[in-house]
Simulated scan of single mutants.
Amino acid sequence: MFGSPKTKDLTAHQVKAALDARQILLVDVREPAEFAAEHIAGAVNVPLSSFDPKALPSADGKTLVLQCGSGKRSATAVDHCRKAGLVIDTHLTGGIMAWKAAGLPTVR
């Protein structure tokens, strides 16, 4: 859509570095069962099925980064944030699949 802001895509390694530097709050928008089965250490779970942008946890000055399984749901969550008037526009491109493909660890 013309004039629509672009979602900022971060790679798995960019997210890992930012997590390690405590610069981001990673929000996993997958469903609770998916999150419980496997997630990125430090991520918090806010499922897309009940997603309310205004109820997102405080990032305390950090950049809030959205994440899902492949990047589709997190991009949808970014769109919900925009529609709610929030400046939350960053997600992990490729989601946890890209994270694992990059050889990065998960919590099971």
Rank of each mutant, 00 (worst) to 15 (best):
P32C: 03
A75H: 04
I88T: 07
G94A: 10
V65G: 11
A18R: 11
S70A: 06
H39W: 03
R22Q: 13
Q67K: 06
F35W: 14
K6I: 11
D52T: 01
I96L: 09
A75Y: 00
D28F: 00
L10C: 13
L10N: 12
F35D: 01
D79Q: 14
K83D: 14
A17N: 14
L66C: 07
I40S: 08
G95H: 07
L92F: 03
K62F: 00
A17P: 10
R108M: 12
R108Q: 14
G69E: 04
D52F: 02
G69P: 04
A84M: 02
T93H: 07
P47T: 13
T63V: 13
L48K: 03
R73K: 09
K83T: 09
G71W: 03
S49W: 02
G61K: 13
H13Q: 15
F2W: 04
D9K: 14
D9Q: 15
H80K: 14
L104Q: 10
G3D: 10
R73V: 01
E31M: 07
S74Q: 07
D9Y: 10
P57M: 05
S4A: 11
F2H: 03
L25P: 07
P105H: 11
V65Y: 06
H39Y: 04
T106N: 07
G61E: 12
P47S: 15
H80E: 12
T76M: 06
W99H: 00
K16R: 13
K54V: 04
G69L: 07
A55G: 04
D20E: 11
T7Q: 14
F35I: 05
P105I: 11
L19K: 13
A37W: 13
A101W: 08
T7E: 14
A36N: 15
A77M: 11
G71R: 06
V87F: 11
S4D: 09
A33Q: 11
T106L: 06
D79Y: 06
H91P: 07
A17M: 13
S70P: 01
H80S: 12
V15H: 04
T7D: 14
R30C: 09
F2L: 06
S74C: 08
H13T: 15
D60F: 07
C81E: 02
Q14W: 10
V15M: 09
L92M: 05
G42F: 02
S70I: 04
L104F: 08
K62R: 12
S70R: 04
D52P: 01
G42I: 02
A75F: 01
T63P: 08
T63W: 06
L64P: 02
D9C: 08
T106Y: 04
M1P: 06
V27P: 02
L48G: 01
L26W: 02
V27W: 01
F35N: 05
A55W: 00
G95D: 07
E31Q: 08
K72F: 01
H39G: 05
V27E: 03
L48M: 15
L56C: 00
H80L: 12
D20G: 07
L64Q: 05
K16D: 09
P53L: 09
T11W: 15
R30Y: 05
E31T: 03
A75K: 05
P47V: 14
N45K: 12
R82H: 11
K6A: 12
V87A: 14
A101F: 07
T93W: 05
A102M: 10
A41Y: 06
G103V: 08
H13S: 15
A98C: 13
A17V: 12
D20L: 08
G71K: 05
